[in-house]
């Protein structure tokens, strides 16, 4: 099963939940943890994996052969992303704008354009005790993360429980991370901000037709507004995680919640049971 842990709002506890869930489930079955928050990965800080394998990830960008180019301007005209500017005798490429659609190198009338690799980041793999660990690291200054997220997700295997730590927000990186999963856990906090962004995430998941359930982190035990929202949208509340100072201190020191409080293993086992119940129903 492929399971995403997302939130909409940042800082609600995606990593707390995904890391503790991975550690708990790895006692029972094969688990892979994929950190798709390639702009600021942090799963490794909690899981301390030994990274054994690293590969560079590139996207294709156009390269202009100035000998063949006659500055006709067709490439700039058809580029939907404005990644090319054609000046008399000089064609400029803006690799950071390019989406590698291939329009320019396929349709240049002079065949003056060839695709070349533009390296955007790395995928690193290793093990954190029983958990197979994969994450991506986007190069500083690169704006487009989905191709790297795709490369991280390509490391998933069918015979494992794959837990994907999704970047915050509801734009392309989050959409790319949740695409194709069997279920998405949405971690929220009982605050107006948390609820507002939870709703955005729910709307995205509904459009993608991905079933989801909610985990209320830093629960005050009441959480009426979140529960009311979930009731209205017919989304199951899968688990509540109490606000706990020791867990917060552990997080700041890079210690997963489930290792700070061994008894919380039960809490994450229950969460997984509920996810399986919802997925199979």
């Amino acid at each position: 099963m492929k399971l995403a842990v997302a939130s909409g709002k940042g800082g609600t506890g995606k990593t707390t939940v995904s890391v503790s869930l991975a550690i708990t489930m790895a006692q029972r079955k094969r688990v892979a943890f994929l950190d798709c928050d390639v702009e600021e990965p942090n799963g490794h800080l909690m899981l301390n994996p030994v990274l054994q394998h690293k590969e560079m990830v590139a996207v294709l960008v156009p390269e202009i052969d100035e000998q063949k180019c006659d500055s006709c301007g067709y490439c700039a005209e058809i580029c939907a992303f404005h990644a090319l500017a054609v000046l008399p005798g000089n064609t400029l490429v803006f690799p950071e704008m390019c989406h590698a659609c291939g329009g320019c190198w396929n349709f240049c009338p002079k065949q003056a354009i060839t695709p070349v690799d533009n390296y955007i980041g790395v995928v690193e793999e290793g093990r954190a005790e029983k958990v197979r660990f994969v994450h991506g690291r986007l190069n500083v200054g690169v704006a487009m993360s989905p191709p790297l997220i795709r490369a991280v997700k390509a490391k998933a295997k069918n015979d494992e429980l794959t837990i994907i730590d999704v970047p915050p927000g509801t734009s392309c990186p989050a959409v790319k991370s949740v695409e194709g999963v069997d279920f998405c856990i949405l971690v929220t906090e009982p605050t107006p901000f948390g609820l507002h962004d939870l709703d955005l995430a729910v709307q995205v998941l509904h459009q993608l037709k991905i079933p989801c359930g909610v985990v209320i982190n830093r629960s005050d035990g009441l959480d009426l507004t979140v529960e009311e929202y979930c009731g209205r949208c017919k989304i199951p509340v899968l688990q509540k995680i109490p606000l706990d100072r020791e867990v917060a201190e552990g997080y700041a020191a890079g210690i997963p919640a489930v290792l700070v409080k061994k008894e919380w293993g039960e809490l994450f086992s229950e969460l997984m049971d509920k996810v399986e119940e919802v997925v199979s129903s």
Binding site: H82, L84, A85, M97
Partner: peptide, 16 residues
Amino acid sequence: ETSGGAGIQTAQLLVN
């Protein structure tokens, strides 16, 4: 109203 690359496209307009 373009989503991105407005500056590049606009500069291209002036070049043309």
